[in-house]
Computed example of a mutant assay.
Amino acid sequence: MMDYVWLNIGSFVLGIIAWTTPLLSLTSDKKKRNKKWVRMSFISFSACSISLCFQIFYIYHKVVIEDWWALIDTMYAVAIASATLLVVTIILNAITLNASRGITTD
């Protein structure tokens, strides 16, 4: 049972990674940003996807053990947090893309 708690911890850590990689890309040197944004966006979207996948596995675990009250109590928060993670990740990466496109390499 305790092993499944790591899915939530891993999901949280990957969500933080999904948000910080575009921010790190934005704060890097302008010439480097133009070269790195694709890689950083890939890392960001991958971390977001794996984070959401961990949540699906955790919910599946709750269904398997038939912990219906835990599902009832937490599903709204999980749905809002998942949607927020996805939307903010997309927005941050769009901002990074926009900033990178405005830079010309010498």
Results as ranks from 00 to 15, higher is better:
T96I: 04
A70R: 07
L23E: 09
V38I: 13
R101N: 12
L85G: 06
I9D: 06
Y58H: 13
S11A: 12
M2K: 11
A18E: 05
H61E: 01
Y58A: 05
R39K: 13
S11I: 01
M2G: 12
Q55S: 12
I103H: 00
K32H: 13
L52C: 02
N8C: 04
S49I: 14
A47D: 08
W19C: 03
L26E: 05
K31Q: 12
W37G: 03
A79S: 13
A70V: 00
H61P: 09
T89L: 09
T104W: 14
A70E: 04
T105S: 15
N93V: 00
A77N: 08
N98I: 15
S100F: 01
V78H: 10
V87D: 01
D29W: 13
A79Q: 06
I16Y: 07
S51F: 09
Q55K: 03
N8K: 09
R39W: 11
T20I: 14
S51T: 01
A79L: 14
L23C: 10
T105M: 14
P22R: 07
I16N: 01
V38Q: 15
F42C: 11
G102H: 02
K31N: 10
A94R: 09
I50C: 10
T96C: 02
K62E: 04
I80F: 15
A18F: 14
T27R: 11
C48E: 03
K30L: 07
V88H: 06
K32G: 01
I95Y: 13
I95W: 12
K31E: 15
Y60T: 02
S51R: 02
A81G: 07
Y4R: 11
I65V: 15
Y4S: 11
T84W: 11
S44Q: 06
C53R: 06
A99R: 13
V5C: 07
K31A: 08
D67C: 01
E66L: 11
S100T: 08
I43H: 06
C48V: 07
Y4H: 10
A70S: 08
S49N: 08
F45E: 05
D3Y: 09
A99P: 00
A77I: 15
D67T: 01
G102I: 01
G15L: 05
V78P: 03
A47N: 07
N93H: 06
F54D: 05
V64R: 04
L24A: 11
A18D: 06
D73T: 01
T20M: 08
N8F: 09
Y76I: 13
I16S: 08
L26R: 12
I43K: 08
T74S: 13
V5E: 12
P22H: 03
D67K: 05
T20V: 11
A81V: 15
W68L: 09
R101Y: 02
I72F: 08
S11W: 04
K62G: 02
L23M: 12
L85Q: 04
K32V: 05
